[in-house]
């Protein structure tokens, strides 16, 4: 989930912040499996995607 360049430098419980486009179930799962935390935006309406 995390770019390979960066992964080795993160600590357990490091927070990863990204916008809503990568906010998908499989990505969030990968972050949790890596023992990292995340902060992201949530797409509330379908129409938000076009903004």
């Amino acid at each position: 989930m995390i770019p390979y360049q960066v992964k080795d430098f993160l600590r357990e419980d490091s927070i990863v912040v990204f916008d809503r486009e990568p906010n998908r179930k499989e990505n969030l799962k990968r972050i949790e499996n890596s023992k990292l935390k995340f902060l992201t935006a949530r797409q509330i309406n379908k129409s938000d995607k076009s903004t």
């Binding site: 770019p3 960066v6 993160l10 927070i15 912040v17 990204f18 916008d19 486009e21 990568p22």
Partner: peptide, 16 residues
Amino acid sequence: IFNTFDFKHININMDW
């Protein structure tokens, strides 16, 4: 960078 600086946290922003 990581050998030179003792970062207090390694929390990251990612964007494209």
